[in-house]
Write a protein that binds this DNA or RNA. Structure first.
Length: 489
RNA sequence: GGUCGGUUGGCCGAGUGGCUAGGCAGAGGUCUGCAAAACCUUCCACGGCGGUUCGAAUCCGCCACUGACCUCCA
């Protein structure tokens, strides 16, 4: 495979040609959810963005090892190094085992991702399952002298690290400004400086999740898990690390510092960050309480929603914007993309039934190339979709007898559409099931509509309308075409 | 306050120097027993001011507004 994909590297802030370290193998690490609540629309963004990348690379023959973690320990409630563990708090409030909370929300996360047709990653490691690796990682950093122990906890010495490395290289932050602006908080006396961050925390007596370590009974710092697990599964240097923009600082910045300190070199070649989903122009997030969970979207059970939206229309909505742009949520925007999605998929299904002519009067020859070019330009899915709509226009024209398409062009169009619609964008209809039951069911509906056709020929409008009305009442949509009919549920 | 972004037509959203983005909505038409769909045509645009250029939504400067991060958040 030829390397043609350009991706925007947050390090350097420009598009760069993607070259894997060990082609055809690609190592991809993406920050997954902290499982203490249901996934919301915001969580769908990175999942779909990196699913798109995963699918695209795989489609081009790369062997991708995609690691997406589950954070189930170490993510604290308030400040970086104080406050309660998010999982622990939920467990206490709900009177559950912490791992019960983790399992519950992990299952629900998987269900949502499955509904969105997000492929499962190759490895989905839990932070709590890699305590030993994280302790080893802390030891390595301690050996370099870039971390210090204080009352049973281990902190990263940011200032000392910055003497020989650049803390802030990813987020563009300046350490002097950080020293001035970082808040000094109560209970942080054990840290030398406010910008230092925890690698290991000694557990308070009431803390539910803790493990033995050389320094104290405690738990790992939040940033550590990604460094430790990324290194374990993808090696000391790997290709791509992704996540939401809001993780750029401090999470990813700290990750770089930890890994560089422990390994003595850079560990990630390309950093990719998806932008946020906004609602009324503001970031949708847990802290602001303005989020809509995926389940609420699928069922329409949120006061801000005027209707339910199918998982696929949510996926399409997200793919219609470039991943580095903010995407504003509104009922109107979602309805618009929902309708657009139907149009796309109706056309796609129509394509399967098209009959070829002797020659083509539509130009679909370079569709694949144009879609590839858009994808290669930093995964420009909205442009891909625009090209697909051009193809839909041609498909409809052929379907209506206003244009013709040759057998060769039709075969190529079908192949291209399948590759981009299904395999790369990951869009699917709800009628792809093809077992005996559905087959019989389709034939039964066709039978009914053929009877209606016969009635129409006899100008028996009463019978014809009756059949259509009854089917409509059952939720079917019946459309007459030039010489037949179309229907869908 | 610091750092970095954004400002495109009724809505969403691409686009980095000249050539149609696309979707949804609106208007007119074709088709049609009716309906729907489809198709054709069409309307609506680049925050403001100045500069560079033969030519700017696209480059530069200033201003305005707005967002993200700087505390947990995808």
């Amino acid at each position: 495979m030829e390397d043609k994909l350009f991706i925007y590297n947050t390090l350097g802030r420009k598009k760069e040609l993607f070259k894997p370290i060990h082609s055809p193998h690609v190592g991809l690490y993406v920050c997954g959810p902290t499982v203490y609540g249901d996934a919301h629309l915001g969580h769908a963004r990175p999942a779909i963005t990196f699913d798109l990348l995963f699918r695209y690379l795989t489609h081009h023959g790369y062997k991708v090892r995609y690691v997406r973690n589950i954070t189930d320990v170490g993510h604290l409630e308030n400040d970086a190094d104080e406050g309660e563990d998010k999982i622990g708090k939920k467990a206490r409030v709900e009177q559950l085992e912490p791992m019960e909370v983790v399992q519950y929300y992990t299952n629900r996360y998987h269900n949502s991702m499955n509904a969105l047709n997000v492929l499962p990653p190759s490895i989905e490691p839990h932070a709590s399952g890699h305590i030993i690796e994280q302790i080893e990682f802390v030891k390595k950093i301690l050996n370099t002298g870039l971390a210090y122990e204080s009352e049973g906890s281990i902190y990263f010495d940011v200032e000392k690290y910055n003497q020989h490395h650049h803390y802030g290289k990813l987020s563009g932050r300046n350490i002097d400004e950080l020293m001035d602006s970082t808040r000094s908080l109560e209970g942080q006396q054990e840290k030398r400086r406010p910008i230092d961050f925890a690698l290991w925390k000694k557990a308070n007596p009431e803390h539910l999740m803790h493990w033995p370590s050389p320094w104290s009974e405690g738990f790992p710092g939040w940033h550590l898990e990604c460094s430790a697990m990324g290194t374990k599964y993808l090696g000391e240097t790997f290709d791509i690390h992704g996540g939401g923009m809001d993780l750029m600082f401090p999470h990813h910045e700290c990750e770089i510092a930890q890994s560089t300190a422990a390994l003595g070199h850079e560990s990630v070649n390309y950093w990719m960050h998806n932008n946020m989903i906004t609602i009324n122009g503001q970031k949708m997030g847990k802290s602001l309480g303005n989020f809509i969970t995926l389940e609420e979207l699928f069922t329409g059970s949120h006061p801000l929603l005027k209707q339910a939206f199918s998982p696929m229309s949510i996926r399409f909505f997200i793919l219609q914007a470039h991943y580095r742009s903010t995407l504003d949520f509104s009922n109107e925007a979602l309805q618009a993309s929902s309708k657009g999605f139907s149009r796309l998929m109706d056309g796609y299904q129509r394509l399967q039934k098209l009959t070829p002519g002797t020659s083509s009067t539509v130009d679909v020859a370079n569709l694949r190339q144009r879609c590839e070019e858009a994808m290669n330009d930093d995964l420009n899915s909205p442009i891909v979709i625009a090209h697909l709509f051009d193809a839909i226009k041609a498909i409809n024209a052929v379907h209506d007898g206003l244009a013709t398409i040759s057998a060769n062009d039709l075969a190529e169009l079908k192949a291209t559409m399948k590759d981009f619609v299904e395999d790369i964008l990951g869009l699917q209809t709800n009628q792809l099931a093809n077992d005996e039951t559905t087959d019989a069911y389709h034939k039964a509906i066709d039978l009914l509509l053929n009877l209606r056709m016969e009635a129409k020929v006899k100008k028996d409008w009463e019978t014809a309308d009756h059949i259509r009305n009854q089917l409509t009442a059952l939720g079917f949509e019946v459309k007459d075409t030039k010489d037949g009919f179309e229907w869908k549920l």
